[in-house]
């Protein structure tokens, strides 16, 4: 259809774009991991698997509903920024929801699911719900996570780095240990 040099040039441009997308994803996450502020989030239990991306532990970060100023006014299914602060134990709490990225405090983009006009609580979904592990370790990790994150027995948390509106899940802790160490210590050699 076209001349060969033109096609090669086009392919070069397309290839660069194809490399740029995953490349930029990496750069953004690396910057966040290196320069981001560290927050701890407690987690609540849930399950499934995603065949396309290998195995991972499915997490649910807390708080998944927050009481913030003007909470009831948020429309359903909207993007928002959850502005964070740390409590006395270093765990993250949401101090307010902003429609745009605030410049004065660390924030994570979340989705407002719905708001309860009666209690003023806003139900939100965090963009962090997967912790990937090696294929064979993931089921064991998930079992450990689930046995440790029941309502009466909660000693699971994740660490998240937040920088410039980006959030990266750094590690999953069970009984105060990183999940990979925990699996080795408890003798579950998978």
């Amino acid at each position: 259809m076209y001349k060969k040099p033109l096609l090669l040039l086009g392919l070069a441009a397309a290839s660069l774009a194809q490399l740029a997308v995953p490349g930029w994803m990496i750069v953004r996450r690396e910057i966040t991991l290196r320069e981001g502020e560290l927050f701890k989030f407690s987690t609540a239990p849930v399950d499934p698997a995603d065949a396309f991306r290998g195995r991972y532990v499915w997490l649910r970060l807390e708080p998944d509903r927050v009481t913030v100023p003007g909470g009831a006014a948020w429309p359903d299914n909207r993007r928002a920024y959850a502005v964070l602060a740390a409590d006395a134990n270093g765990f993250a709490k949401v101090i307010r929801l902003d429609p745009t990225l605030p410049s004065d405090a660390p924030a994570i983009p979340v989705r407002v699911l719905w708001s309860d006009s009666r209690t003023g609580e806003v139900h939100i979904r965090w963009p962090l719900d997967r912790f990937y592990m090696e294929e064979k370790k993931a089921p064991a990790a998930e079992a450990a996570y689930r046995s440790r994150s029941r309502r009466d027995n909660r000693d699971c948390h994740v660490t998240v780095r937040v920088h410039d509106g980006n959030a990266v899940l750094e590690n999953l802790f069970i009984d105060g240990q990183p999940i990979r160490d925990y699996l080795n210590v408890t003798g579950k050699s998978y």
Binding site: Q18, V21, P22, M25, I26, R29, D50, F52, R53, G54, Y56, P127, L128, D129, R130, F131, Y132, V168, L169
Partner: peptide
């Protein structure tokens, strides 16, 4: 391969599925 590369990076950095 385009889809795979994006997915693999997402897996490395625990990026959730949009």
């Amino acid at each position: 391969a385009i889809g795979a590369s994006i997915s693999l990076v997402a897996q490395t950095y625990n990026i959730s599925g949009d």
